[in-house]
C-alpha cells in the first residue's frame, strides 16, 4: 500500500481538540486496511480492574494483558474473542450464551466473559476505548483467521460515522464524542447476537483435506523410513475424523507418527495448547493434551480401541481451548 511502505498495520488515533470553539473532543480512528481489505488493529485484552483487585487482595499473580489482532466487524452485533485468548488470561466464564451465524440455522453456543479492552494507537496515546468489564462472547476462531478479536457493533456504535477513504486505503471512524458509555445491549437482551463475518467455513469443511492428508500418510511414512500405517489404523483414523468434522470447525494436522501409527493433531491459534490423538497400528490409541501453564497436569490416556476417542474428544478439545 502506497501510504504504508513498510506494509505495517497501524491504527492512528487522532483527537483534534478545538478549544477555541469549545468543542471538546472529535475523536477519529483511522485504520489502514490489510492485504485482504479488512480494517484490522491491535487490541489489548486484560482481566479487568475488578478481577485484578480481587487477585491482588488474595496476593495472587495478575495475568499480563495480551495484545492480539482485532477486526473491526460491523457484521458482529457484539465483540467476540477467541476462546484461547481468554483462557490464556486465566478468566472463567460467567455464563453460556448462544449466537447465530449465516451458515447455521441453529444457535451456536459460546461462553460469556467480562474482559478489559484497551485500544489505542500506541502505549503513550490516549485510548479510543478503555473499559474494564466489557461482556464478550468467546468461542474458538477458525485457525485460518489472522485475528483473535472481532470488535463488534457494541463498540463500533460509539462512532457517529464510519467511511472508507479510498485515497489512503483506510477506514475512518469518527465520533462527536457524545457517546461516552459502552452499549451493553446484548447483555440482557432476549435477541441472540449475530456473528456475521467469522464463519466463512462451516463445521467439517476441513474434512476433505484431512482425508487427503490421511492417505498421504502412507507415502510420508515411507519417505521418513517408517512402516506405513496399517489398514486398521487408517480405518479408525478416518472414522474419528468423520466424527470430529460433525462437531468442530478447527482443522487438525494429520501425519504419520512412525510405528505404523497416525497422528491427529490440534493446535490452538493463540498460545501453545495441543490435543494430539494417536491411532496405533492395531486400532488402539492414546490422547495427549498439553495446555500452556498446566505442566505436570497435562492429560494423557491410552485406549484399547480408538473409537473410544469419540466419547471424550469434544470435551478434551474444549479443555485444550481448541473448541
Amino acid at each position: 500500500m502506497s501510504h504504508n511502505p513498510l506494509n505495517y498495520n497501524i491504527s492512528v488515533l487522532h483527537f483534534s481538540i478545538e478549544r477555541a470553539n469549545n468543542k471538546r473532543i472529535m475523536p477519529q480512528l483511522t485504520i489502514p486496511t490489510d492485504d485482504a481489505g479488512r480494517p484490522c488493529l491491535d487490541v489489548q485484552l486484560s482481566i479487568g480492574k475488578e478481577h485484578e483487585k480481587t487477585l491482588q487482595a488474595r496476593k495472587m499473580e495478575v495475568p499480563t494483558p495480551r495484545t492480539v489482532r482485532g477486526l473491526m466487524d460491523s457484521g458482529a452485533s457484539c465483540t467476540c474473542v477467541d476462546i484461547s485468548v481468554v483462557r490464556a488470561l486465566g478468566l472463567s466464564s460467567s455464563k453460556e450464551v448462544h449466537f447465530l451465524t449465516p451458515l447455521s440455522n441453529d444457535p451456536i453456543t459460546g461462553l460469556q466473559y467480562e474482559v478489559g479492552v484497551h485500544i489505542a494507537a500506541g502505549p503513550t496515546q490516549r485510548p479510543w476505548i478503555d473499559t474494564s468489564n466489557l461482556p464478550v462472547i468467546a468461542f474458538p476462531f477458525s485457525p485460518d483467521q489472522p485475528f483473535h478479536v472481532l470488535v463488534g457493533h457494541d463498540l463500533l456504535s460509539r462512532f457517529d460515522k464510519i467511511h472508507y477513504d479510498k485515497d489512503i486505503e483506510s477506514y475512518v471512524f469518527t465520533s462527536k464524542g457524545t457517546k461516552a458509555s459502552i452499549p451493553t445491549a446484548h447483555r440482557d437482551t432476549e435477541a441472540l447476537p449475530f456473528i456475521g463475518r467469522l464463519f466463512r467455513r462451516s463445521l467439517g469443511d476441513w474434512l476433505p483435506t484431512a482425508l487427503k492428508d490421511l492417505k498421504e500418510c502412507v507415502g510420508s511414512a515411507h519417505d521418513d523410513g517408517w512402516d506405513p500405517p496399517t489398514d486398521c489404523a487408517m480405518d479408525h483414523a478416518r472414522a474419528f475424523l468423520e466424527f470430529l468434522a460433525r462437531h468442530i470447525a478447527s482443522e487438525p494436522n494429520i501425519y504419520s507418527m512412525g510405528d505404523a501409527d497416525i497422528a491427529i493433531d490440534f493446535c490452538t491459534t493463540y498460545g501453545r495448547n495441543n490435543a494430539l490423538f494417536v491411532v496405533d497400528d492395531d486400532g488402539s490409541g492414546a490422547v495427549f493434551l498439553s495446555v500452556e501453564g498446566e505442566g505436570e497436569d497435562d492429560y494423557y490416556q491410552r485406549v484399547e480401541d480408538a473409537t473410544e476417542f469419540q466419547k471424550d474428544a469434544v470435551n478434551l478439545l474444549y479443555k485444550a481451548g481448541i473448541i
Partner: peptide
C-alpha cells in the same frame, strides 16, 4: 518434507503459532 515445510512457512508468514508435527521429535524405532 516439502509439504510440512510449506505449511510451517505459511503459518510463520501469517504470524500464527507453529503447529509443528510431533513426529519430527519422536526418536526412530
Amino acid at each position: 518434507s516439502e509439504r510440512q515445510a510449506g505449511k510451517l512457512v505459511r503459518q510463520q508468514e501469517a504470524n500464527r503459532p507453529l503447529n509443528v508435527p510431533k513426529n519430527k521429535f519422536k526418536p526412530p524405532v
